[in-house]
Structures are given as structure tokens and as C-alpha cells.
């Protein structure tokens, strides 16, 4: 006997509610996993030391103390200088990538010249290149320039990244070519067409690339640990790595290590919090066009 499917609005609605509830439960479960480590580092950093090592573990802090933060700063004598250099390196690297990457991306997207395709293809291929192959010779080149121990050494190898050029090119394709043609007929110079007409049209791309390069410089670790191995210039990531190596094993400094982790994560998190809407939509868009 064939079972007749009868449309029953009440039943359909109930099924939909059950289905959505299940999806929500799964999503909340994953959200807890994704965010819990942050919660745990924060409460570990702000609870008194005795509480950190207390068993059984309590998931809610009972006391509150700045002890861990104070201890962190008292043990880090050159925190200020490292913070300053990290900001300098990150900002300079971000702007060279946005400007020169934008300029090259625009040129590949909108200007005609011989070798355009082949040059771009060679650059694109290098995105698949593992960085480890080039990193030691890069050190050699930096050393020959006399820049070991200099903050510029951290900025230079990635100052005009291929990824940024590729990324910006996608956005310039989205701006109508007619815009530039009109300005060209009016006699505007090529650089002015780029700077005054096209550049302001791709702000969402610039913001997104800005966030990506900010994070990649701010969080870089292996390369700075090579070129800043000697000398007084340090980055926060290096300082924290050393701090953890020195004190991480002591049960007492768990809170201080967490305090350090929070401090180094904070700028990225704040920037993301403000610009996430921009960022996630743009990254999705750039992915579609790949």
C-alpha cells in the first residue's frame, strides 16, 4: 500500500523547529570549542595564583587579581621597546604592501604592456613555493645588506608580497575600465588615474589586505627569530617565546604566560572586532573569484 503524503502545516512546522534546534545545538557546541581556549586564558590570567593551580579545577574565577599581569611586566624589562618595534615593523610592512601591491595589482588588471601575462603567471606560481626554501638565502641577502639586527630586515622580504598583488588585482577588475578611459581622454596622467580614481574604489579590498598583512607581520615568528637573533631589536613574539622558555615551566607563572598571550593577541582581536563585517564578506568575495 502506498502511503499518501498529506501536507500537514503543523507537522511541517514542528519538524522545521526540531531541525533548527539540532543545528543550533551543533553550532553552539562548536562555538564553545572554538572560543573556550580564549575564555580559559583570560580567567587564568585574572584569577589569583593559588586558584590557577587549584584542584579540582573551577571554571569560574572566585577571586580577581592583577598579579599575573604585574608579574609579566616586571619580568619583561624591554617590553616597551619590543612593542614599539613590532608596531613600526607591522605598520611599515602593511603600507608598503597596500601601496606597491595595489599599484602592481592595478597595473596587471588595467594597463596594457608586453609580458603582462607571463610576468603575472610567474609571480602567481611562487605562491605555491614553500617559504622554507627561500628563507636561508633571504637571510644571506639581508646579511649582505648589513641589516641583520635591524627592524627593516623583518619588513623587507614580504614588503611587496605576491599575495597582495594577486588579491588587489581581483578588486581592480571589479572597477569598470570605462572610468579610467574617461579620465584618460580628459588628459589625466596614469598615476593620477590610479591614485585618485581607482584606489578609492577598492577600499574594502585594501582594508582586508591591511588586516591580513597586519596579522602576518604582527604574528611572525620564524623569520624574526633568524634576523633578530642578535642585537637589541626584538619583536613581541620573540620576547614572549623567550619568556615562556624561561618561566613557562614554573607552575607559578602560568598566569603570567597567559597574560602575555592575551596582550599579544589583543590588537588583532580588536581590529577584527571592528572590521569583521568588511573583512569576512570581502574574503568570501575574493574566494569566489579565484
Amino acid at each position: 500500500m502506498v502511503k499518501e503524503k498529506i501536507y500537514n502545516p503543523r507537522k511541517e512546522k514542528a519538524l522545521k523547529i526540531i531541525k533548527n534546534t539540532v543545528i543550533y545545538i551543533i553550532m553552539i557546541f562548536f562555538a564553545v570549542i572554538m572560543l573556550f581556549p580564549f575564555y580559559w586564558s583570560i580567567i587564568t590570567a585574572i584569577r589569583p595564583w593559588e586558584e590557577v593551580l587549584q584542584v579540582p579545577v573551577s571554571f569560574i574565577p572566585h577571586g580577581f587579581s592583577f598579579q599575573s599581569f604585574k608579574n609579566f611586566f616586571s619580568l619583561m624589562d624591554n617590553f616597551g621597546s619590543a612593542l614599539g618595534y613590532t608596531i613600526l615593523i607591522t605598520i611599515v610592512g602593511m603600507f608598503t604592501n597596500l601601496f606597491f601591491g595595489g599599484l602592481a595589482g592595478y597595473t596587471f588588471a588595467r594597463l596594457q604592456f608586453r609580458g603582462r601575462k607571463i610576468i603575472f603567471r610567474i609571480m602567481l606560481m611562487s605562491l605555491m613555493l614553500p617559504t622554507i626554501v627561500t628563507i636561508l638565502p633571504q637571510y644571506y641577502i639581508i646579511a649582505k645588506m648589513g641589516l641583520v639586527g635591524n627592524w627593516l630586515a623583518v619588513v623587507l622580504p614580504g614588503a611587496v608580497g605576491v599575495y597582495g598583488i594577486f588579491f588587489m588585482r581581483q578588486f581592480f577588475y571589479g572597477v569598470p575600465a570605462a572610468l579610467g578611459e574617461a579620465a584618460r581622454i580628459d588628459g589625466a596622467g596614469e598615476f593620477r588615474i590610479f591614485w585618485q580614481i581607482y584606489f578609492p574604489q577598492v577600499t574594502s579590498g585594501l582594508i582586508t589586505l591591511g588586516i591580513i598583512t597586519f596579522n602576518s607581520y604582527w604574528n611572525s615568528y620564524l623569520w624574526p627569530s633568524m634576523v633578530l637573533l642578535t642585537g637589541d631589536v626584538k619583536m613581541l613574539s620573540l620576547l614572549l617565546g623567550d619568556f615562556q622558555q624561561l618561566y613557562g615551566a614554573l607552575p607559578d607563572s602560568v598566569g603570567s604566560v597567559m597574560a602575555g598571550a592575551i596582550i599579544i593577541m589583543l590588537p588583532s582581536l580588536i581590529i577584527f572586532a571592528f572590521l569583521q563585517k568588511y573583512f569576512l564578506n570581502t574574503v568570501t568575495f575574493a574566494g569566489v573569484k579565484e
Partner: peptide, 29 residues
């Protein structure tokens, strides 16, 4: 949820390693 799931991707590898080292600690806590 998209925002929440993305947050771990923007954080420093060094900081994340600190946090997980603590979570994976061999001690009772």
C-alpha cells in the same frame, strides 16, 4: 557563528601555543 568560528584564525601562533600548552598540561590542573 561565522565570526566566532573565524576568531582562532587571526590569533598569533605563539599565543595560541601558550594557551594549548596549558590546556594539555600533564599536571592535575
Amino acid at each position: 557563528f561565522r565570526i566566532m568560528y573565524y576568531i582562532p584564525s587571526i590569533t598569533s601562533g605563539v599565543a595560541v601555543s601558550f594557551i594549548f600548552q596549558f590546556l594539555f598540561s600533564a599536571a592535575d590542573y
